[in-house]
C-alpha cells in the first residue's frame, strides 16, 4: 500500500488510496458503456467548466462576451477494499476538450484506448496523447455487431503502435469482457514498472 500521509492529527483515519484508469477513444466508441459495465455504481457524471481562458480562439468566433460552457465527464467506481478505490474515467475524445486531459491523465495508472474498426482514425489522438506522455495504455477494439472484424495485428499496423502494446478485442457491454480489458492493462503496467522505475526523472512525464 502507498504510504499514508497524515494531513492532520486526531481526525478520522483516512487511510484509503484512490487510483484511476482512463477509458479514452473517439466519439461514441463505447467509453461510457465500458465504465458502466464494470462500475459498482451507475456511471456518475461531473462537469468541468470551460471558460474563455481554456477555449481556443476559433471556438470563440462570433461569441459575445464571456462564455462558460461545460463538459460532462463520466466515471465509475470499483471499491477494491476499504483501503483501495479504483476510479474509471471516460475521457472525452474531442480535441476541444483537451484542456482537461492533463488533469485527467495526471497520476493515472494507465489508459484503455477504445477503438472502433469502422472509424479507427478517431482513436489516433488518444494514442498520440498517451504515447507522448509515456502513460501506459492498451488498445481495446470494441466489436460493434456487424462491424468488420479486424485482427489485432491489423489494428496495430493501422495505428502504428509499438509491438509491446497489448491490443485486444472486446465487447464493452459485457462485464467479463471489460474485466479482461482491465486485467490486461494492469498486467501490462506491472510488466512495465521496472522499465519505468529505471527512468524516474521528471522527463518521464514530459512530452
Amino acid at each position: 500500500m502507498a504510504s499514508v500521509d497524515s494531513e492532520r492529527q486526531g481526525g478520522p483515519n483516512l487511510n484509503a488510496t484512490a487510483v484511476k484508469i482512463l477509458v479514452a477513444g473517439g466519439f461514441g466508441v463505447g467509453k461510457t458503456t465500458m465504465v458502466g459495465s464494470v462500475s459498482e455504481i451507475p456511471p456518475l457524471s461531473t462537469e468541468e467548466m470551460l471558460t474563455e481562458l481554456s477555449v481556443g480562439v476559433d471556438d470563440l468566433a462570433g461569441v459575445e462576451g464571456k462564455t462558460t460552457t461545460t463538459v460532462a465527464l463520466d466515471f465509475g467506481r470499483i471499491t477494491i477494499s476499504s483501503e483501495l478505490i479504483l476510479y474509471l474515467f471516460g475521457t472525452p475524445g474531442q480535441g476541444r476538450f483537451w484542456f482537461m486531459w492533463d488533469e485527467l491523465a495526471y497520476g493515472a495508472l494507465g489508459a484503455v484506448v477504445l477503438a472502433d474498426t469502422r472509424r479507427l482514425d478517431s482513436c489516433f489522438p488518444s494514442v498520440d496523447f498517451f504515447e507522448r506522455r509515456n502513460i501506459p495504455f492498451i488498445v481495446a477494439v470494441n466489436c460493434f455487431d456487424g462491424a468488420d472484424l479486424y485482427q489485432p495485428e491489423e489494428v496495430r499496423q493501422a495505428l502504428a503502435v509499438d509491438e509491446k502494446v497489448p491490443i485486444i478485442l472486446c465487447d464493452v457491454r459485457q462485464r467479463e469482457s471489460c474485466k479482461q480489458v482491465l486485467l490486461t492493462l494492469i498486467e501490462y503496467i506491472i510488466a512495465l514498472a521496472p522499465a519505468l522505475a529505471g527512468d524516474r526523472s521528471p522527463a518521464v512525464t514530459s512530452s
Partner: peptide
C-alpha cells in the same frame, strides 16, 4: 510516476475478484 508494485498487485487482485 511509477506506482508502487504492491499497489498495482492489489488493484489487479481486486479486479480479478469482480
Amino acid at each position: 510516476r511509477v506506482p508502487d508494485k504492491n499497489l498495482l498487485q492489489a488493484v489487479l487482485d481486486g479486479v480479478r475478484r469482480l
